[in-house]
Design a protein around this nucleic acid. Structure first.
Length: 483
RNA sequence: CGCGGGGUAGUGUAAGGGUCAGCAUAAAAGGCCCAUAACCUUUAGGAGCCGGUUCGAGUCCGGCCUCCGCAACCA
């Protein structure tokens, strides 16, 4: 059986999840369900990134210990599984000492054995208010924006990873598509960065300044930096570094890794560099999605436009939210959310489109009574061809991660079906064969829809049941009431 | 002139030097009445701006305008 290992980036849990955070796992969920449906041995991983100075600060502000703080926030991200009906198999937390740390440590040692880790003095702008290094970006007239004081230039000793050594090899794997990056523009972006060459990156901080993280093996004075350990979650979760590495052997390399555009450099440069250093294969592909804006604006707490996915689902239902994000948001570019657009799409595509189509077909189906199985043999070619065409289109679109276009193809079936019902006037006279044809169409539609809208697909399928070799229709409640 | 990527009907998008720039949704008219005042058919509506290459340009080239991203923890 073919395996399919898919991962999302692990969100940094220094606040509760917002709507933009769910894109990763929603895309991954559709692909995972789709592959399962096709018989792949799927493993779908998500998790949470829980270390770092920012967590310490946020925890302190909330009056909690870092552990209490991440436990609380991580649980909220985890509960999105129910909220959005996600089908992940595993949720890894970087603060998990039993599952995550051993793999991280082994990975670190591999890099060390390769001679790619070395200590170096790092000089940077240190803001006392932040108790952390700041960048030029954080400054305003030479002062820290948040604290209005001049940062000090201080030096500290860090471990550095020799990323520069791997620029060429990473470039080669990307340009030859051995490591595929979607979409093309992101591929170009990273290639142009690689052409200029990568700099070595800091992989640790002094423990006295950062004690919430994984300690550097053999150097208790240092704590690993995020990418030195968070990225390793993709393999630590498979048991890399544990007594039993069979899962790792089976599933690595990842077939698809999904990230937001901000993560491109980490996943297309640092992570491949680390894997090369450790002698491990690179992922097969990287799918880079855009960001979500709300009413055309960047999501931000200060603007106050944060959309809580839980609230949205409560109001409109899981599949409606899934549909909006999958259909209205381009998988590769930034997309916008607004209640107005949401309701427009909901009424148009879900209530009037899919929901109404299902209702009218099931009604005529129910009225028609029982169906002779012999009708199946007389299914017209036209219908079967149409179904096959849509299936093929969905396959092709999903191979390229064009989830929105895949849904366009699915909706062609709805339009086709509606038109079929109208032109054949299925409600008039005895149209058993035609009704059967339409029910077949609907049944197939539900199957195609399953990875996208699992709950809705199930409701449809449940209404079409074969009992004792007879087809019986049980009309379900309205799928998507108009809003 | 730092680098890179964009700007297609109100909205979301497709194609990509050569059939009326395709599709969906929102809008208008007719039809139907099985269905969630839903559905079907038809109509109207479009390439940021300015030049150039070409028999022919959303599509290639140049300039301008504009938006987005750009390695220390941000999906």
């Amino acid at each position: 059986m073919n395996k399919f290992y898919i991962t999302t980036s692990i969100p940094y849990v220094n606040s509760a999840p917002h709507l933009g955070n769910v894109l990763d796992s929603l895309y991954a969920d559709v692909l995972a369900r789709y592959k399962r449906q096709r018989g792949f041995d799927v493993r779908f991983l998500t998790g949470s990134d829980e270390h770092g100075a920012k967590i310490i600060r946020s925890a302190a502000a909330a009056g909690l210990t870092p552990k209490e703080f991440v436990d609380k926030n991580s649980a909220e991200f985890r509960s999105l599984k129910e909220t959005l009906n996600l089908s992940w198999d595993d949720f890894i937390r970087t603060s998990d000492r039993e599952r995550h740390w051993p793999g991280t440590e082994k990975f670190w040692k591999k890099l060390e054995e390769a001679g790619d880790l070395h200590k170096k003095i790092y000089k940077g702008l240190y803001c006392v208010g932040h108790e952390a290094f700041v960048t030029e970006k954080d400054l305003e007239n030479g002062n820290c924006k948040d604290h209005q004081r001049k940062p000090e230039i201080i030096e500290e000793e860090n471990w550095f990873f020799k990323l520069s050594k791997y620029s060429k090899e990473i470039y080669k794997q990307i340009i030859t598509d051995k490591f595929k990056i979607f979409p093309e523009t992101r591929k170009n972006e990273i290639l142009s960065l690689l052409e200029t060459g990568l700099e070595d990156v800091s992989f640790s901080r002094p423990s006295k300044d950062l004690n919430w993280g994984v300690p550097v093996p053999g150097d208790s004075t240092q704590t690993m930096y995020v990418w030195a350990e968070a990225l390793a979650s993709y393999i630590s979760s498979l048991g890399y570094g544990s007594k039993n590495e069979s899962m790792f052997a089976k599933y690595w390399p990842a077939d698809v890794q999904i990230i937001g555009k901000d993560n491109l450099r980490f996943h297309a440069a640092i992570w491949p560099g680390m894997l090369l250093a450790a002698g491990l294969p690179l992922p097969i592909s990287l799918f880079v999605h855009g960001f979500l804006t709300v009413d055309g604006q960047k999501i931000s707490k200060t603007v106050g436009n944060v959309i809580d996915p839980v609230e949205l689902v409560k109001k409109y239902g899981t599949d409606a939210v899934r549909y909006y994000l999958l259909k209205e948001i381009s998988p590769f570019e930034d997309g916008d959310f607004s209640y107005e657009k949401f309701e427009q799409l909901y009424n148009g595509d879900l209530a009037n489109g899919l929901g109404n189509f299902v209702a009218r077909v099931l009604t005529v189906g129910e009225k028609a009574g029982e169906f002779d199985p012999a009708l199946e043999k007389k299914l017209p070619k036209e219908i079967l061809t149409k179904i096959e065409l849509v299936k093929k289109a969905v396959d092709e679109k999903l191979d390229q991660f064009k989830l929105n276009e895949a849904l366009v193809a699915v909706w062609e079936l709805v339009h086709y079906g509606d038109s079929y019902v109208n032109t054949r006037k299925l409600w008039e006279g005895d149209k058993k064969q035609e009704i059967f044809n339409t029910l077949t169409l609907l049944d197939n539609l539900a199957a195609i829809l399953r990875p996208f809208l699992p709950e809705t697909a199930k409701k449809i399928t449940d209404s079409i049941c074969w009992t004792n070799n007879q087809l019986e229709i049980k009309k379900s409640a309205v799928l998507f009431p108009r809003v």
